[in-house]
Design a binder for these strands. Sequence first.
DNA 1: CATATTCAGATTGCATACAATTTGAACAGG
DNA 2: CCTGTTCAAATTGTATGCAATCTGAATATG
Lengths: 238, 238
Amino acid sequence: MTLLEKTTASPDTLTEDRSMAIRESLRNAIIDRRLAPGTKLSEAEVGALFDVSRTVARAALQMLTFEGLVKTERNRGAFVSNPTPDEARQIFASRRLIEPGIVAGAAERITAEDIARFREQLVEEERYMNERGPAARRAEIKASGDFHLMLASVAGNAILQRFMDELVARSSLVIALYGRSGVSSCGHSEHFAILDLIERGDAKRAADLMLHHIDHIEADLDLQPKQGVALKDALAIT
Amino acid sequence: MTLLEKTTASPDTLTEDRSMAIRESLRNAIIDRRLAPGTKLSEAEVGALFDVSRTVARAALQMLTFEGLVKTERNRGAFVSNPTPDEARQIFASRRLIEPGIVAGAAERITAEDIARFREQLVEEERYMNERGPAARRAEIKASGDFHLMLASVAGNAILQRFMDELVARSSLVIALYGRSGVSSCGHSEHFAILDLIERGDAKRAADLMLHHIDHIEADLDLQPKQGVALKDALAIT
DNA sequence: CATATTCAGATTGCATACAATTTGAACAGG
DNA sequence: CCTGTTCAAATTGTATGCAATCTGAATATG
């Protein structure tokens, strides 16, 4: 529990709510894998790190629990989520339902300035792709998720946007846990293709491609039941 | 703020978490319209009602805020949400994306016992439909929502189920606020029809009908911008 | 009479204190 | 050496106290 940028937040945003800022910071740390799944997040420790009382730290942890990024066990504390393969499948099943609709919404409302921002985002994503090392890998996963979130924000439905915030964050966890090596090389080009179709106003094809894109991301995972029954079987000496 | 059943909860469930129980109780009160939109929910008052400290009451209110059933303004307090027409549209747009998928999932996994439970639920719904008076109206809205929630629980995706919990609860608020008089007479028969199609394993048609069903619910609303610019215009004496 | 100002009451934001629970290590017994 | 027990340290759950903020009514002012 070390590398937490205590974001000296923008003057107006931090004025708002400190627990929200802490949530944001922890969120980023979790989806960046600076906080590994299973890591304990004790209220006192979080409070000390951000220089607030347990009350505020606790509120932040409650929010993260609601989002599914943290699992809280009564009287035991909060831990970074360790999604099971089954949860992973549920996450992607949910995305398959929601994201085609988001693409359709985005296709209707996207502006030229939006498209410019998207292209910037995609070149940045590309840059991380070509870098090596775990830090670049994390940044790549993050940037890839951001593309989906930008689409959600353009689609103009605040509720779906919030759902996507949660789903993308949890997806990042899942990818970090279950992802195979050569990840999103194809995923990235699909982002480009989706954006092109949206720009051309071909909402139907864009939505279809998004569906395939999600399939590809999921297909790139190795969703074995982890250790599952391992203990029982591992000790069953033949 | 009177009619709150302080549910003498089931021995095992209440042991769990008191703020959760309070959340549940307030939730029910809100979607039943015993707590009208705009009602202030002060921490002290909620705490006194449930015989807990502000700390616990506050946690419950935070959860409801996350669900969108309550809006919290900094330094001012928590209020039962008063969804705008635009929010209402977003809610139904979200449901249109998610519920067809839920129907498909339910069609795959539904059992004979499930179907029996659904039929029970539907006759209860029918009973409320034939009763008169606001209490029956509330119960009808609640029961109608429960049908959708039961589908979600059968579909076997915990994430979507949680999304639906939120969407159905907020829909109840919207219907209570913007619903026209002769509400769900058609909606109810559609529930029957959807269940029949699911039972027959015709997932595609069931999903399509669900889509229409949501359209019908939304079409039955009167989503005018409420008073909106009213004040300015109302005083503009021609 | 309308508008601006002041101030007390009430309410939330936050920190802290105490009680309840869990955990794991020391220790006793087989 | 292994197992079961006891107990203290640590952590969470909850209540409460104080400071900051908002609200609205009373008052002052043009």
